[in-house]
Design a protein around this nucleic acid. Structure first.
Lengths: 236, 236
DNA sequence: ATCTGAAATCTGGTATATCAGATCTCACAA
DNA sequence: TTGTGAGATCTGATATACCAGATTTCAGAT
């Protein structure tokens, strides 16, 4: 809320639209393909055809190609030059993506514990309090957004922009899966305890503990995801 | 060396060419731009123009666009839709890339310590022995390739393909910088000691120690890089 | 002097045509 | 029957034209 009426009339009444909110076709294609791959709608090693995709999605091959390049860099597809594009995703890959996220999130937690400021610590505590309430109420949708807030606050406290972006790429729980996960009271309880432990460690500047607890949390909740998406085990 | 003379005559005399060795224009563009950015030939936040790049490199805009999408996913450039492409790299970014690599390599080291097999352990020991010799001889070029071998052997022992690829994207020491680093006898000595410690921890299946030592090694050698490329400190 | 807005211009986004490597098909020769 | 290879075909790679949002320029109005 800066007062800059002289240079930007009305700047205090309506904020500038962040250019990043504008979207492109390739962005839609990227998100759509990504979601399709991560939810298992492509078989591992399945070939995808650029022209065919373009037709299915009703666009030209240009945005398709660009989206595929992004997915390639993310490690979700592999391009064999002049031969074809293959889907590169299966249970093992998902497991490794979870490990990557665990490694990066725990690094962030470590730094957040060292760098967090008092005001930020207060907000983090508030978030945990809200999570506690939502957990008791069984408010799954609230938990989903609080979860995002929680991790985002830690990212901000860590002062790591690059690492934050890297982590976004390892994020493959989409809303529907999250809802399934959070609908289980036992899972909700575990998650709450872990979040509380992470927050406590960060707030008390115990970077080693924050790192450890965060890693365990990401791995454990990742395994929950694996069980749901890949039906790895059918026990209770 | 499989004997499949019946289906593939001569298969035991000459091996198949790996399709990944074939290259494309976009790949050249990607590597060229990446190297240029990481070595500081673009200013932070500098705008780059697709058509201009295409003209400079003597190609059309298509491979340029695809290479830029890859760099965008890597976090080295940022695209503002319909506005422009910006370079996103500076000392802080490089620092975070080092942290990302440290987090991922230490995760890999942890798993390698748990999963390494006897034959692999022997090879790793051999590599360290060669490194010791090269360090004493001051053979910088040998050290550079041995370094690659060393980390690659650990990646293989960890059975993590996805993580290995992720790490490749955090690799920004090009050959010329490595040569500068390895030309310093003090640095060579430190690196040797660290490599030996990493190998020992992995071979003795001490996963926690492997993780810790690997992380310290990546961070410390990364700082050496930062000092060279960004001239962060001028002391001795 | 300052503000307004239409037009020129810049830049990425998208569609399309064409190129070229990789595969497949199949007639035909050994 | 089997192997060969020319030609058809599939698919990604590249070049190019054009579209549309964003920005700048600048004449004209206040």
């Amino acid at each position: 809320m800066q007062k800059e009426a002289s240079t930007e009339p009305g700047a205090d009444r309506i904020e500038k639209i962040d250019p990043r909110f504008l979207t492109t076709l390739r962005d839609h294609v990227h998100k759509a393909l990504r979601a399709a791959i991560l939810s298992g709608r492509f078989a591992p090693d399945e070939r995808v055809n650029e022209r065919q995709l373009a037709e299915q999605l009703g666009v030209s091959t240009t945005p398709i190609k660009e989206a595929l390049r992004q997915l390639e860099t993310e490690g979700l597809v592999e391009t064999l030059p002049r031969r074809g594009v293959l889907i590169r995703f299966n249970a093992g890959w998902a497991e490794e993506m979870i490990l990557a996220r665990a490694a990066l999130e725990s690094m962030i937690a470590h730094l957040a514990a060292k760098r967090i400021e008092k005001a930020e610590a207060g907000k983090l505590e508030d978030t945990v309090a809200l999570m506690r309430k939502a957990t008791e109420d069984g408010a799954a949708d609230d938990l989903i957004s609080l979860n995002e807030t929680f991790h985002e606050q830690i990212h901000i406290a860590s002062r790591c922009q690059y690492l934050s972006r890297m982590i976004e790429r390892q994020q493959f729980y989409d809303a529907s899966i999250r809802r399934v996960i959070h609908s289980d009271p036992l899972e909700r309880g575990k998650a709450l305890a872990e979040h509380a432990a992470i927050a406590a460690a960060i707030i008390s500047n115990d970077s080693d503990k924050a790192e450890r607890v965060m890693r365990d949390h990401v791995v454990r909740s990742g395994e929950t995801y694996l069980n749901i998406v890949f039906n790895k085990k059918e026990d209770i």
